[in-house]
Computed example of a mutant assay.
Amino acid sequence: MTNILKQSWNGIQSFWKEEDGIGTLEMVLIIAVILIIALAFKSKITAVVTGMLDYMGQKSEEFKK
């Protein structure tokens, strides 16, 4: 049983130390796509957030009463 735990722990450690991953170009592209989508739906996002904040304000006022 101890051997299995040791092997599992070594596998987890090697996975954690592995440096293969997302490169800088991929990160920049992902951020660019997210920004483009956010700008395209800016009015919708603003309306949803405003509605949620208004609703939470109303509920907090009801709770205070």
Rank of each mutant, 00 (worst) to 15 (best):
K17G: 00
V48F: 08
K6Y: 05
I12T: 02
Y55H: 10
V28D: 06
A40N: 06
L5M: 04
V28W: 01
A32Y: 03
S8V: 13
I30M: 09
Q13N: 13
Y55V: 09
W9E: 10
N10G: 00
K59E: 11
F41H: 04
K17E: 06
M56H: 01
Q7W: 00
I22K: 01
G57L: 04
S60D: 13
G51H: 06
G23D: 10
K17I: 01
L25H: 07
T50Q: 14
A40R: 13
A38N: 09
Q58I: 11
G23A: 03
I4S: 08
E18G: 03
I30D: 07
L5Q: 06
G21Y: 06
I30P: 00
G51P: 04
Q58A: 15
D54M: 13
D54T: 10
M27S: 13
D20S: 13
I36G: 07
K65M: 12
Q58Y: 11
I34W: 06
W9P: 00
L53N: 12
K64V: 11
F15M: 07
K59M: 14
I4L: 14
I4T: 10
A47C: 00
I31C: 07
F41L: 11
A32P: 02
V49S: 08
W16E: 02
G57P: 04
T24F: 12
L5N: 10
I34E: 03
S14A: 09
G21W: 01
G21N: 03
Q13A: 12
S14Q: 11
F15E: 08
A32Q: 05
E19G: 07
Q7E: 11
L25Q: 13
I22R: 02
D20K: 15
F63N: 09
G11T: 06
I12W: 03
E26F: 04
